[in-house]
């Protein structure tokens, strides 16, 4: 494979809070190849959403700032790109959908206007009727019945699943090369969730776009993704292709997450395994490995030094001193 589509290199993002500077992302590096689906998984506050917002440069200003690193897309560093050029990329070449379809659409404008806006923005020469036709076709593609009528409706007249479909339609209008999906199914019920995931898969097959899929749900990851990043405390702690991750999870945290999923082959009504302790706030992470205070395999070294993200067989990357001993257990 040639050049990756998107390269994130040593990205670090900080937030100004009342307690001081909080480093929400620390030394994040990964690649996204054309046409693949990369999953980013982790608990709340691990930095997975901040990663996507950093790539899109949508961090809440002035609190959030990228302090280090590069995001290389099409030969340019998005971090350094002038605002005007960034406007041309957002919604056009890299699009994004969000967690809350209920609030992500502007309540006072009709669906048609919110779709057409994106098209008109990135294709200034497009005529009104062309925009309308393209909008209708797009709504059809995302599986919205009676699209002509929907164009004239307001967001509150649609259900949550329909609104998320509209969001997807808006995101895909300009045929983006990358779609960033930030927990797009978390707010939806399970049947709708399955429909949306299937829709994303189908659309990816049609368009060949890459998807960065952010979620805390390993089940969704298993269904959709080719490769997975596991994040903890603002750092990547494991990166692997989907089969490796589920067969041979490297990091004790990943193992903990996988064990915490109920399985059909387990005896029913048993207590689920959990990871002990709580995720500390960004200010309270222990020195050394950030997971050491919750890890079952902790050693003295883990408390002193920070492990690096090392690459092992099959390109699996793990940030753990004891990976080699643990993997053979």
């Amino acid at each position: 494979m040639s050049e990756p589509l998107l390269q994130v290199k040593h990205l670090a993002t900080e937030f100004q809070t009342e307690q001081g500077l909080a480093r929400a992302l620390d030394d994040i590096s990964f690649e996204v190849n054309a046409g693949e689906t990369l999953g980013i998984v982790g608990e709340s506050g691990c930095g997975k959403s901040v990663t996507s917002l950093s790539i899109m440069r949508l961090l809440p200003k002035p609190a959030g700032n990228i302090v280090q690193g590069e995001v290389i897309f099409d030969g340019q560093d998005l971090v350094q790109l002038p605002a005007d050029d960034m406007h041309n990329i957002r919604g056009n070449r890299i699009a994004m959908i969000f967690q809350e379809p209920m609030t992500a659409l502007n309540p006072v404008y009709r669906i048609g206007r919110q779709l057409g806006e994106t098209l008109a923005l990135h294709n200034p020469k497009m005529s009104k009727s062309d925009i309308r036709d393209a909008s209708i076709r797009m709504l059809e593609r995302v599986g919205i019945p009676a699209p002509e009528r929907r164009l004239k409706e307001y967001p509150h007249q649609l259900s949550g699943g329909m609104r998320q479909r509209v969001m997807i339609a808006i995101a895909l209008l300009c045929n983006p090369e990358i779609l960033i999906a930030d927990e797009p199914t978390t707010a939806l019920d399970v049947t709708i969730q399955a429909q949306i995931l299937q829709l994303l898969k189908d659309l990816q097959q049609e368009t060949g776009m890459a998807i960065i899929f952010i979620t805390h749900d390993l089940g969704v990851i298993a269904e959709l993704c080719d490769r997975v990043l596991v994040m903890y405390g603002g750092r990547i702690i494991e990166q692997a292709d989907i089969n490796t991750l589920f067969d041979k999870p490297g990091h004790p945290y990943t193992r903990g997450l996988l064990k915490a999923i109920p399985r059909l082959d387990q005896p029913p009504k048993e207590e689920l395994s959990t990871i002990r302790g709580m995720v500390p706030s960004l200010f309270d992470f222990p020195p050394g490995c950030r997971f050491q205070n919750r890890c079952d395999f902790v050693q003295e070294r883990c408390r002193q030094e920070t492990p690096e993200l090392e690459t092992y067989n099959d390109g699996q990357q793990v940030r753990c001193f004891r990976f080699r001993e643990l993997v053979n257990e």
Binding site: L58, H87, I89, R90, G91, F98, T103, A104, L121
Partner: peptide
């Protein structure tokens, strides 16, 4: 300004 739909608008590429 802090609402989700404004973030959506910016994600669409609107200045």
């Amino acid at each position: 300004l802090a609402a989700d739909y404004v973030r959506t608008a910016i994600a669409k590429g609107i200045p």
